[in-house]
Structures are given as structure tokens and as C-alpha cells.
């Protein structure tokens, strides 16, 4: 079932630029420039792009708080802006830099209030809350006012708050921003578990590439408001020809010439050779048979490399 259907989505902002002391010029900038996006139920989608690419602007339009300039948007079968209040019941949202909790109230009270606002039946609320408390370790600060929580604690509270009404789609805009390694892992593990259950669709925006590798089966990359990639991480590696590396260490310098299809020698110090490969097997066999092989390690391609190459490609001239 398709839960998000976006076609030709566009958002223009009018900015006033100061030219001289007296003259100000109006300029129209397209923050989102013709985005097409279809998301099926249960997908865990990474929505990526460099700073200012238009990610947050897209999410605001999908959640109904910002009017699109043009294009068709349907989320859970609703048109977000006119049907915002109905849609709000079906989606959960976390904006990493904002809080949806009540500053002066303990987490527990915030959760109770959300139960009333979303009219969540008692048992459902209790079950969801229990799950979040266990997975996100909330118990030690359930009674602390939100303003006294650390960023990581608050973020776990935010995630819980966005899930208490069992939303069909969860929109997360940089949920791991500013978190330490442990908190990040807690959040990631939680999202992975949620994604694996398959009933919640997750749209995740992040600059943390570990989030993406761990969580997202599909990534959509936008730049200057346009989609420049839509597919899996493997697709991305394929497209940019990024390959795995084999690092081989020898006791004595290795001189046997390697000439295998799909294998490129990247560097050699005599006793340490680095190859870029499509398949490890044939190379490993040659190395083991023709030298004093001591150690062999395989490095997966760096997602950071491909992403940075993608970001540097001018929009519109992809691949």
C-alpha cells in the first residue's frame, strides 16, 4: 500500500536581498524544486542531502504545516494542509531541534496529556509506553521536568511522544543530532526494531551516515531541491563504481603479477598491497597460492565517499 505519494512538489520562498542602502530586491528561491516520491507502507526511507537541500522543507509540506507552491501531495490518503488535523492523528513527527514536550511538566505528565490529545485508548497507550520505556530506558527520568533533561534523554522522550498514538508514518528530522555514541545507538536500535516490525513507515533525515547504513534499505538524496538519487545504498556504490578493498600483508615482498578481471591494484609497499575488487574469492586464492600471506582484510566501501561525491556533483548532471 502506498502511504506517501508526491508528484512535482515545489516550494518557493521569497527572500528580500539588500542591494544597496535603500534598494532591496525580491528574489524567489526554490527550496524544493519538483520532487517526486512514492513510499510504500513499512519502508524505512533515508531522506538525505547536504545542508540547505530542502529536506526539512519537504517534511514540513508532508506533515501539513507548510503550503506547497505547486505539486500533488498525498499522505495516508490525505492532502496534508487542508486535512492537517486528521492527518496529525495518523503520523508521528520528531524535529531534532524542536521539542514537542511540555517544558515545565515531567515526561510522565506529557505522555498522559498526549494520550488525551490523541484520544488513545488506555491499554494501547500503556502497551506502547511500556515498550518505549523498556527499549529506550526511560524509567530513571520519567518524573523529571523536561527542561531538566539532557539532550539524549529528551530525544528518547520525543521519540516516545511521537509513537504513543501508534502512527502509520513516523517523520524524523535529524533525530540523532547532538547525541553521544550511546544515545545514538539506543535511538538507532529502537528505530531498527520499529522498522523490522514492518507496520510503521519511517522517513528519516540525518547527516549521520552510520544511521543510514544501519537503518535505511532505501535512500533518496536531494540536492538544491531536486532528487538526485533514489535507490539502495548498493545502487549508489554501483553507480559510483565504489568497490570493496582487499588489504593483504605478506612476510616477504609480494611480486607475483595479479591480472584478474575486476581487480585493480591501488597501492603497494611490497609487503602490503591494497586492491579494489568486485569479488574477493579469486584474488584471495591467487594471493594465498603465490606468496607468504600473513594477513588479509576486507574493507567495505565507505558510504561517506559516495555520498560526498554525490553531493559534489552539480544537480541535474548525475551519474
Amino acid at each position: 500500500m502506498r502511504v506517501i505519494d508526491v508528484r512535482g512538489l515545489r516550494k518557493e520562498f521569497t527572500v528580500r536581498v539588500r542591494k544597496t542602502m535603500l534598494r532591496r530586491e525580491k528574489r524567489v528561491v526554490a527550496a524544493v524544486d519538483g520532487v517526486d516520491l512514492r513510499v510504500e507502507r513499512g519502508e524505512l526511507l533515508g531522506y538525505l542531502g547536504p545542508n540547505g537541500a530542502g529536506k526539512s522543507t519537504t517534511l514540513k509540506m508532508l506533515t501539513g504545516v507548510l503550503h506547497p507552491t505547486a505539486g500533488h501531495v498525498s499522505v495516508c490518503g490525505f492532502t496534508p494542509v487542508p486535512q492537517r488535523i486528521k492527518l496529525a492523528r495518523r503520523i508521528g513527527v520528531v524535529f531534532g531541534q524542536r521539542s514537542q514536550l511540555w517544558w515545565d511538566l515531567p515526561l510522565r505528565d506529557s505522555f498522559d496529556l498526549l494520550k488525551a490529545i490523541y484520544r488513545v485508548p488506555g491499554e494501547q497507550h500503556a502497551a506502547q509506553l511500556k515498550r518505549c520505556r523498556d527499549l529506550l530506558d526511560l524509567d530513571s527520568f520519567m518524573d523529571t521536568p523536561v527542561r531538566q533533561l539532557s539532550l539524549g534523554q529528551r530525544m528518547r522522550g520525543e521519540l516516545t511522544a511521537s509513537l504513543l498514538h501508534s502512527p502509520e508514518i513516523l517523520f524524523l528530522d535529524e533525530p540523532t543530532i547532538g547525541l553521544d555514541v550511546v544515545s545514538k545507538q539506543a535511538v538507532r536500535g529502537f528505530l531498527a526494531e520499529l522498522g523490522a516490525r514492518g507496520d510503521t513507515t519511517i522517513v528519516l533525515t540525518t547527516h549521520d551516515l552510520a544511521d543510514i547504513e544501519r537503518l535505511c534499505s532505501r535512500i533518496v538524496v536531494i540536492d538544491h531541491g531536486k532528487v538526485v538519487h533514489d535507490g539502495s545504498i548498493q545502487d549508489l556504490h554501483l553507480r559510483y563504481g565504489s568497490r570493496r578493498r582487499v588489504i593483504a600483508d605478506f612476510d616477504v615482498a609480494f611480486t607475483y603479477p595479479v591480472d584478474l578481471p575486476g581487480v585493480v591494484l591501488e597501492s603497494s609497499t611490497g609487503t602490503r598491497l591494497v586492491f579494489a575488487v568486485d569479488e574477493v574469492g579469486p584474488l584471495a586464492a591467487v594471493l594465498a597460492a603465490n606468496g607468504s600471506l600473513r594477513d588479509l582484510s576486507i574493507a567495505e566501501p565507505e558510504i561517506e565517499d559516495v555520498i560526498s561525491r554525490l553531493y559534489q556533483t552539480p544537480a541535474g548532471q548525475v551519474g
Partner: peptide
């Protein structure tokens, strides 16, 4: 924006 995200 978070006020507008609520079903009320």
C-alpha cells in the same frame, strides 16, 4: 510548528 502537528 509542533503546535500545528497536534490533532487539535
Amino acid at each position: 510548528v509542533t503546535d500545528l502537528m497536534r490533532p487539535i
